[in-house]
Amino acid sequence: MKYNFITIEGNIGAGKTTLAHLLAKRFNARLILEEFADNPFLPKFYENPQQYAFPLELFFMAERFKQLKELLQQKDLFQTVTISDYLFTKCLLFAKVNLPDDEFRLYQRLFDIIHQQLIQPDLLIYLHAPVKKLQENIRRRNRPYEQGIPNEYLFNIQETYTHYIKQHDIKTLFIDASNADFLSNDIHINVILDALSKDYDDGQHYLTLP
């Protein structure tokens, strides 16, 4: 294992949390999971995006910052690896999709101040799946407020993520998760484990699951 802090990212329904759980168990790692269910604005946002987008994104940013700041400052002699199922920068990426320009500019100023205070991951694992696959996963996990998410919204999130990663030269394992089944297919998880034993330069490194 070459990395001490790994972050897993991807669109809604890409399988981030499932993979994070499996890797944390395999490496006896400290696990940081996004506490999205605590956001009181999330169901309201899906019903009325224009009215609730700004408080939604502010709440997410504050909670993610608080969680990462506290957990990453703690030293654990028995868990030297940390795995998170979100990148703090997702605050900015979702805000870019959800907020009008004037609100986004204000939000970005706040984000820039906060972002500097956090440790950045050694490696980003990005799960990329087509919108059809995302919708199947969303239906399967059956969170009521997610069931009406339109394809266009998922596509916009996807485009925003991939553009950001390619523009910022982040050390990224970019995984085609079109047929990913990390729970039932040992070959898929073993491909990830093998990839984590290697060193990578900054930038994107593409991986396809068999």
Rank of each mutant, 00 (worst) to 15 (best):
I170S: 03
F5D: 05
T208S: 07
L134K: 05
F111Y: 08
P55G: 13
A62C: 15
A177S: 06
A195Y: 02
Q158V: 02
G203S: 00
L193V: 06
A95V: 14
A20C: 11
Q116Y: 11
L23S: 03
Y164V: 13
L123E: 02
S178F: 07
P130F: 03
H128I: 06
Q74L: 15
G13E: 06
A37L: 11
I32Y: 07
Y153D: 01
P150F: 01
R139C: 09
R139P: 06
I165K: 04
G13R: 01
E103P: 08
L209T: 01
Y153I: 04
L19Y: 03
F174I: 07
N48C: 13
Q116K: 13
A95H: 02
I170H: 04
A95F: 05
Y86Q: 08
I192E: 01
K66H: 09
T18Y: 02
E47K: 14
A14K: 08
T162Q: 13
Y200T: 11
G15K: 03
P55C: 12
N48Y: 14
Y52K: 11
F182R: 07
R26N: 10
Q120S: 12
F94K: 04
L173D: 07
D122C: 06
Y86I: 15
K66S: 10
L72P: 08
D201Y: 07
Q50E: 15
K2S: 06
E57S: 06
A29C: 04
R109G: 15
K66T: 03
V131Q: 07
S178R: 11
E9F: 08
I32T: 08
P130Y: 05
E63D: 14
L77C: 08
C91L: 10
Q108P: 10
E146N: 08
L193Q: 08
L173I: 01
L154S: 02
Q74R: 14
D102W: 02
N11T: 04
F45N: 08
K90L: 11
E152A: 13
K75C: 09
G203D: 01
Y52D: 07
M1Y: 07
S84A: 15
V131T: 13
I175N: 01
L196Y: 04
G15S: 08
E103D: 14
P144N: 14
I125N: 00
D38S: 14
Q73E: 13
N142I: 13
Y153V: 05
D194M: 11
S178I: 07
L106Y: 05
Q167F: 00
I175C: 02
I8S: 00
K198T: 06
V97G: 02
K198M: 03
D38I: 15
F88R: 10
T17K: 08
I8L: 00
Y145N: 13
I114G: 06
V81S: 04
H128Q: 15
P121T: 05
Q167C: 12
E47R: 15
L106D: 13
Y145L: 06
P130I: 01
R105I: 14
H168T: 09
I6C: 10
K96E: 05
P150E: 09
L99Y: 02
K132W: 11
Y200R: 01
R139W: 12
K75E: 11
Q79N: 14
F111S: 00
E34Q: 11
T7Y: 13
K166Y: 07
R30W: 01
Y145Q: 14
Q116C: 10
Q74T: 14
P121Y: 01
Y3W: 06
F45M: 05
P121A: 06
E47W: 09
D186F: 12
H128C: 14
K25V: 02
N156G: 09
A62T: 15
I192D: 00
